[in-house]
């Protein structure tokens, strides 16, 4: 047997796949949402902002608990998903993706929103005056000016999903190759008194977290006000 068992790479691969899938979906969701929140003058805006930021303060087990109830085959939502689309969200990888999207939502939306807010209003107005559409304004004018914020949202969402524990524990079920991500595997190996393997997972995550932050701060050094 190799020094690292197959299960070690399988778990790390799964963890990266979960974080990558979540981050890409969050990017697609986060740009319009962040843009909307930055430009909205609506009376209900604080409500939306509070909802987006909820996962920051809620214990992940609370989120996991509600997701478990919602996704369960016994709930009306869960059974509807199952019978209509043949999708099962509890104890599956897709379920983890949905949970992670909610869990990491503020880490994508908040940097993007503050990026948009930091842009002077006349930037967009000038573009509209020159007859550019909202789409062109967004993709050619606004987004290129908040690249650092977008990068920050990407990196933070990715890293936060890698470190996810409570939600996965509640709705994942710890199945090797499907829902056992690195943070769960550490817990599992410690429970099984395999301190060696737990230490290796933990070491990988420590190095990874350091590298992620190193990227952010290096980019920061070139262009301030990223974090």
């Amino acid at each position: 047997m190799d020094y690292f068992p197959d299960a070690f790479w399988q778990t790390l691969g799964l963890t990266v796949r979960l974080a990558a899938t979540t981050t890409i979906i969050l990017l697609v969701v986060g740009i319009p949402l962040g843009w909307y929140l930055a430009s909205a003058r609506h009376r209900l805006k604080p409500v939306f902002e509070a909802l987006v930021s909820m996962p920051l303060v809620l214990p992940p087990t609370v989120l996991g608990f509600y997701l478990l109830l919602a996704f369960s085959a016994e709930s009306s939502f869960g059974s509807w998903l199952n019978s209509t689309f043949n999708i099962q969200l509890v104890f599956t990888f897709s379920g983890l993706v949905v949970g992670s999207i909610i869990y990491s939502l503020p880490f994508m939306v908040q940097p993007i929103q503050s990026g948009f807010e930091s842009l002077p209003a006349h930037l967009a107005e000038a573009s509209y005056t020159l007859g550019k559409s909202r789409w062109t304004t967004l993709t050619r004018i606004l987004l290129p000016n908040i690249r650092a914020s977008v990068l920050s949202g990407l990196v933070l969402s990715f890293a936060h999903t890698i470190g996810e524990f409570g939600v996965v524990l509640m709705i994942g079920g710890n199945i090797p190759g499907k829902t056992r991500v690195a943070s769960i595997a550490i817990y599992d190996e410690v429970e099984g008194l395999n301190y060696g393997l737990a230490g290796e997972y933990a070491g990988v995550l420590v190095i990874f977290s350091f590298l992620i932050l190193l990227v952010i701060y290096s980019v920061n050094a070139r262009k301030p006000r990223l974090l």
Binding site: D6, W9, G13, L14, R17, A20, T21, I175, P176, G177
Partner: peptide, 10 residues
């Protein structure tokens, strides 16, 4: 990494 398969089929 989204598309990569996570090792041996489970």
């Amino acid at each position: 990494s989204c598309q990569s398969d996570s090792g041996p089929a489970a």
